[in-house]
Amino acid sequence: MAEMTRRRGLTGYLLLVPGVVWLALFFVIPFYSLVAASLFDPGGSVFSGYEMTWHVQNYWDALKEYGKPNSWSDWGPLLRSFWYAGLSTVICLVLGYVLAYAIAFKAGRWKNLMLVLVIAPFFTSFLVRTLAWKLILGDDGPVVSVLQAVHILGADGRLLATPVAVIAGIVYNFLPFMVLPLYASLDKIDHRLIEASGDLYANPFVGFFKVTWPLSLPGVVSGTLLTFIPAAGDYINAQLLGSTNQRMIGNVIQNLFTDANDYPAAAALSMILMVVIIAMVLFYVRRAGTEELL
């Protein structure tokens, strides 16, 4: 009996091996070298090499350069990234919730088709989709023309190279990551619970907030995380749809790595981004109290 148990335990550990090896190779080692790079002597270069000088100052320098607002209108790339990502996540949540709710409860036999349509954008490249938005939001494109016709935009107004375009792009690109977990959560809700709330004197509005919403919280939490985390580090939308005034932290990191070849600064900034995101996520998950939900 004990023999059996031990062997079963061993099988469990063996099953862990591929995943652990994978993580070690593709997460732990790069992470370790990222941490190391963030502490290199900033005076080094790709050409002369870098010395490990435990230069913690890299973090301060990166924060000073990119982490503080320059003015009321210019927040600097780090804060701007979190602002764009946060706003995009809220918009995604509102749009995504309505969509997921409709698919889960109202779509009937169109449910699968609608789900396919939600996933359909994934069948084409992320970049091509974002470039398509460039056409849609272009100065001579349909959206600007309509907005100009109804005088929301002035005659020389534009959407491209504004925060509107960048946030619209982020919302569009990450909406499926919001819809799918929300749908999974909503679809799992026993419809009889909603009937029960109506039976117990809750009108549909109250019923939604007392029953549907709390039961969908796991989906809300995972959807917002799946949207917010990549959105905060995203640089493609800002690069293709924005201008220099919309650059996000991802653009800065990319530039530091590829063009400026300033590895210590790039690594320090990557670490800062990661730490801030992890801190925000931990705080959020604590507050949302997902462990209480079933």
Partner: peptide
């Protein structure tokens, strides 16, 4: 780039 930074914690030699 990250992989290019190689493992040793104590600096990376030049590429010359």
């Amino acid at each position: 780039s990250i992989a290019a930074l190689k493992l040793p914690m104590f600096g990376v030699s030049g590429a010359k």
